[in-house]
Design a protein around this nucleic acid. Structure first.
Length: 716
RNA sequence: GGACGGUUAGCUCAAUUGGCAGAGCAUCUCGCUUACAUCGAGGGGGUUGCAGGUUCGAGUCCUGCACCGUCCACCA
């Protein structure tokens, strides 16, 4: 046994060895009870970060533990094309390097570039995942945009379209003028900004606005019906006012959406560019006019400002209001939040545009149902399908706290906008010819059909992930055996994007739940508690740490102290600390092996009471660790084992054994006990620190050794 | 504006249903004893955010407050 443990050398060789054993593939395992996890597919946008490393650690623990418990443990790898994120990344790169936009390149050429970037990222990521020691079944690897998944997406779309659950409509959407696409409500990020708030004279009224550049088309002035200050004005009354481009006729509208407490209690509306205004306009059947185009520039209605970008035009427009004596007052310290595209895009401008939506309220009949609380043939809708399995406990969320957040999201949910005006992703399987619309998995026969240019929101394909990876829409035996999956282990930050959508898609298409348990982990933050980001320069690259301290140390440093749903602070010191732990385990093993060179496995002797006490001490610890693992208390389990190895087995048992081993009478049984306990320790520690434990296992002088510790029996 | 989480040793966090406040790191003292100095032996360090209440007993339960964080929300 080497005096020093060389993680670099051992880890590289051991992963290859594991792959060769075939034990990552449950088809080669003896058990019959399945245990399934699908890996949340990393985006093919570059590299793995610490968050990925943590997620791999948690899932690999579950998989290795259950495999040792004799289950058919399946962990399915895959990557996500992440349409908007990947597209944005490549667009930026091309713009920086060549000064071109995707529109300059054209759809075909641009897609080629994205695909080659995606392939590169994929290869890097797969390599990194392997370095972490993940026992994934690579024979089942999937990609959200490969042929099988493409078929699944199209099939899913078609079914939902035919049942009227997917529809196309003119609606107000979140338009990103920078990336030139719409994004869903969940992809928005709010940023608080300090801006000026302008009070403008609109005939007899003073109206407030933070967006004077949208005011060109104003012809409705709205107030609360019960606002006493304005009782003299009647709904529908027409007034003539002097406005930015001369006299306009305006109509008084009374609507409860107006808050009398805010500003002057009167506002003019811009239905094309604001959701509240849009809804008011819908209620009263008012005209809607576009003021800003899809590039974020003013339209001809703005007269001399037409073609200008908003930021540039705003001060000039304010100046004009001022000159015309229409500016009453300016509040310079107005704070409000603006919406930004969280996928690296720009400031959101609401626009009316034709888009595809999933109707979350529409009732439909579910033929068969394995969902608790929903009967065969019952009428239901997507909101209910998402809610029911959590309510009945058929799906358990850990930590429980997130249930409330989940319900709250469902209650406030609006129709999910699934179309995107970007090119990288699943093209919408709909074709048009004149007034005809055709939806199918394959394009229609005949000439003159044009496919919808849009692609689907990346989360549409992600929503199918638990079953599309198992071969759906084909009715495979894989699906029967491994679905519903056992655990969905993912970050709490994508509970809406992903967890909810999987529940929705799976209950609808499979009439079943996607997973039995949801374990939500926290974020990996830097040592000061800040989010790791490249711009802040506070990232720790998992691969650097693997090279310096080993994958085992990196993994366990992400586990201890990470309880469900809470963020973890990581520093290099922490990882170094756990490297010391793997070193300790190595030396403990060396001590045991050095003192058992003459051990004869054939001879069976009776243990002394002290021997038994030692063994019981380990049993107790292992039992506790098992309970903790069953309850997803990874941190506690790891800490518990850490403590036992170091402060009980090493500090007490080995120290005391030094004397016992000297004595010929007591030597033999003690050797047996030490080997037995050491074997137990490395088995229970294996899910956490797989490499070093495998290496030690291979060196143990025991009989009936399996080819790998991965398929050893769990010692409880 | 609404909800949720947090506040415990210098730092990061534990403490099952209320039952003697703990661990790791850091720090200090001593020790290169042939498993390990990536180590060992030992020490110091606390009014559990604040103010009340329930209880034989509160870090834990109740009420109020303060601060930090997160999510949600159409205030122009």
């Amino acid at each position: 046994m080497e005096k020093k443990y060389n993680s670099q050398e051992v880890e590289g060789r051991t992963y290859r060895f594991w792959e060769e054993t075939g034990c990552f593939n449950p088809d080669n395992l003896a058990g019959s009870e399945p245990f399934t996890i699908v890996l949340p597919p990393p985006n093919v946008t570059g590299n793995l970060h610490m968050g990925h490393a943590a997620m791999i650690a948690y899932q690999d623990i579950l998989i290795r533990y259950n495999r040792m418990k004799g289950k058919k443990a399946l962990w399915i790898p895959g990557t996500d094309h992440a349409s908007i994120a990947t597209s944005s990344k490549v667009e930026k790169r091309i713009y920086e390097e060549e000064g071109k936009t995707r529109h300059d390149l054209g759809r075909e050429e641009f897609l080629k570039r994205v695909e080659s970037f995606a392939q590169e990222s994929h290869d890097t990521i797969v390599n990194q995942v392997k370095r972490m020691g993940a026992s994934l079944d690579w024979s089942r690897e999937a990609f959200t945009l490969d042929d099988k998944r493409n078929l699944a997406v199209k099939t899913a779309f078609k079914r939902m379209y035919e049942q009227g659950l997917i529809y196309r409509g003119q609606r107000i959407v979140n338009w990103d003028p920078l990336m030139k696409t719409n994004v869903s409500d969940d992809e928005l990020e709010r940023e608080e900004r300090k801006t000026s708030f302008y009070y403008l004279k609109f005939g007899p009224f003073i109206i407030g606005t933070s967006r004077p550049e949208t005011k060109f088309g104003d012809k409705y002035v709205v107030m609360h019906p019960e606002d006493k200050r304005y009782l003299d004005y009647k709904h529908g009354q027409e007034i003539e006012v002097e406005w930015i481009n001369g006299k306009v006729k305006a109509i008084i509208i009374k609507d409860k959406a107006v808050d009398p407490e805010f500003g002057t209690g009167v506002m003019t509306i811009t239905p094309w560019h604001d959701l509240t205004d849009f809804e008011i306009a819908e209620r009263h059947n008012l005209e809607k006019e576009q003021i800003i185009d899809f590039d974020g520039k003013l339209l001809s209605i703005a007269k001399e400002f037409s073609g200008m970008e908003i930021e540039k035009a705003r001060p000039l427009i304010v100046e004009k209001f001022k000159k015309k004596n229409l500016l009453s007052e300016v509040d310079e310290n107005y704070r409000h939040s603006v919406a930004v595209n969280s996928r690296g895009g720009g400031l959101i401008e609401s626009q009316i545009k034709e888009q595809w939506f999933i109707d979350v309220n529409k009732k439909f009949r579910i033929e068969k149902s394995n969902i608790e609380g929903i009967k065969d043939g019952q009428e239901t809708n997507f909101k209910e399908l998402m809610r029911k399995p959590i309510e009945t406990g058929q799906i358990r969320i850990v930590p429980e706290m997130f249930q409330k957040i989940y319900y709250h999201w469902i209650d406030n949910l609006r129709d999910w906008c699934i179309s995107r005006q970007i090119w990288y992703g699943h093209r919408i399987p709909v074709w048009y010819k004149d007034e005809e619309v055709y939806c199918d998995v394959e394009p229609p026969e005949g000439k003159g059909w044009k496919q919808d240019p849009d692609t689907l929101d990346t989360w549409f394909s992600s929503g199918l992930w638990t079953f599309s990876t198992l071969g759906w829409p084909e009715e495979t035996s894989e699906l029967k055996l491994y679905h519903p999956t056992s655990v969905m282990e993912t970050g709490y930050d994508i509970i809406f994007f992903w967890v909810a959508r999987m529940v929705m898609m799976t209950t609808y298409h499979m009439n079943d739940i996607p997973f039995e348990n949801v374990y939500l982990h926290g974020l990996v933050l830097d040592e000061k508690g800040k989010k790791m980001s490249k711009s802040l320069g506070n990232t720790i690259d998992p691969l650097d740490m693997v090279e310096k301290y080993g994958a085992d140390a990196t993994r366990i440093s992400l586990i201890v102290g990470a309880t469900a749903g809470t963020d973890i602070r990581l520093s290099e010191d922490r990882i170094r600390g756990y490297r010391n732990f793997t070193n300790k385990l190595w030396n403990v093993s060396r001590f045991v092996l050095m003192n058992t060179e003459d051990y004869n496995a054939e001879e069976k002797l009776e243990w002394t009471p002290k021997d038994r006490e030692i063994f019981d001490g380990f049993k107790k610890t292992a039992k506790k660790a098992t309970e903790q693992l069953e309850n997803y208390q990874f941190s506690h389990a790891a800490e518990n084992l850490y403590h036992y190895l170091w402060h009980n087995f090493a500090d007490k048992v080995l120290e005391e054994s030094k004397e016992v081993l000297e004595n010929k009478k007591t030597r033999k049984t003690r050797q047996e006990v030490l080997l037995e306990v050491l074997k137990g320790i490395i088995k229970t520690l294996h899910p956490f620190i797989p490499f070093v434990t495998e290496e030690i296992y291979q060196l143990l002088p025991i009989k009936e050794k399996k080819k790998t510790i991965m398929i050893e029996d769990w010692p409880v």
